[in-house]
Design a protein around this nucleic acid. Structure first.
Lengths: 182, 182
DNA sequence: CAGGGGTACTTGAATGTTCAAGTGCGAGTC
DNA sequence: GACTCGCACTTGAACATTCAAGTACCCCTG
């Protein structure tokens, strides 16, 4: 059993440490992880760059606009929106301030009497915006992901991603709002 | 052929736009992309959180330390290091300033006469640091990725990631240092 | 209805990344 | 050998995200 040179794990050849209980990756695992890591670094950057370049928004803001555009009345309560766009409430709040400044979104108090507090609403201009930029975004997703994989590869990728996202999420989610065993 | 409700693509039911040349995703593609996107959002966050919590570094700094620890003499020229750690030179420079402040790395002028200019060198303390934190990092990678997938799933994931990273990279890489057709 | 606690945000400061200059040095040019 | 060009980095400002308070309103309890 030889020592694998581990870019992201095994670090030296010094064997004085408690070697046995550290589960270093095999060469093969190493390679797959390396590839995944590379994708993790490059894909979001590429997606973001396209949105920034052609639309002037980052992918989080895009997400917010997209979520709003699909909601009844183009309106969502902020907490729900934050959860949908997978960011903290604080992040959403800052993003909304920016989007309001551009005139694409407005905040309004929730109308329901006795209901919750704030909602975000997509303006007409915001709707026009997202409709204008969505095609370019989809094209980029196609170019970078959909079109470079076979159907089987895409399915396998999606499946693996689902499993990983589920595990990664449960660590992050301190709310435990879902039916997880916490 | 019905309209798919597209979280990240098709935005409204208004069909007045140039519908035909926008290649909207199918429901299935949509789902896979959605899963991938979710992983893209959650996995790096989780990895980063573990490193921050247990080691006080972010994953970029970890990457820098790891790269250095594997180099002969624990020394690399800055440009090479920047490329290995997949960040801009500026990002590296800022990161090195932080790492120097912690005493894990030092900058030194390249010794080769007529050679290039600067190098980064891992200090003894830096080597101890990376050796101390590597196991925890590997364990986290295992927990989040390796251990939740079958071997076949991991292989498929790696393969897909390689393809995507290659495409995503060529857009990002303005240097065209590699043998790409540019 | 006064007081306490919780929910739903908002805000400002700290941190990290990017972007646009700026610097210093070597090489090629005349 | 001065001039210019370009490479290899550095730096500071702008921007985004996170973290830790802070605020405002609701409900519940006495």
């Amino acid at each position: 059993m030889f020592k694998q040179r581990a870019r992201l794990s095994r670090v030296t050849n010094d064997t004085t440490t408690t070697e046995t209980d550290v589960p270093w990756l095999t060469d093969d695992q190493q390679q797959q992880w390396r590839a995944l890591f590379e994708m993790l670094a490059t894909l979001p950057t590429a997606i973001d760059a396209q949105l920034k370049r052609e639309a002037g928004v980052n992918s989080y803001e895009y997400q917010v606009l997209a979520s709003l555009s699909q909601s009844p009345d183009h309106t969502i309560g902020l907490s729900v929106l934050a959860e949908e766009a997978r960011g903290s409430l604080s992040r959403l709040s800052h993003a909304l301030t920016r989007l309001e400044k551009s005139g694409w979104v407005e905040r309004c108090p929730a109308s329901e009497p006795g209901g919750r507090r704030m909602q975000a609403r997509l303006t007409d201009s915001g709707l026009a915006k997202i409709e204008a930029i969505a095609p370019g975004h989809v094209r980029e997703v196609r170019r970078l992901v959909i079109d470079v994989l076979t159907d089987d590869q895409l399915t396998a990728l999606g499946e693996a991603a689902r499993v990983i996202a589920a595990v990664a999420q449960e660590g992050t989610a301190e709310t435990c709002a879902e039916g997880a065993d916490c």
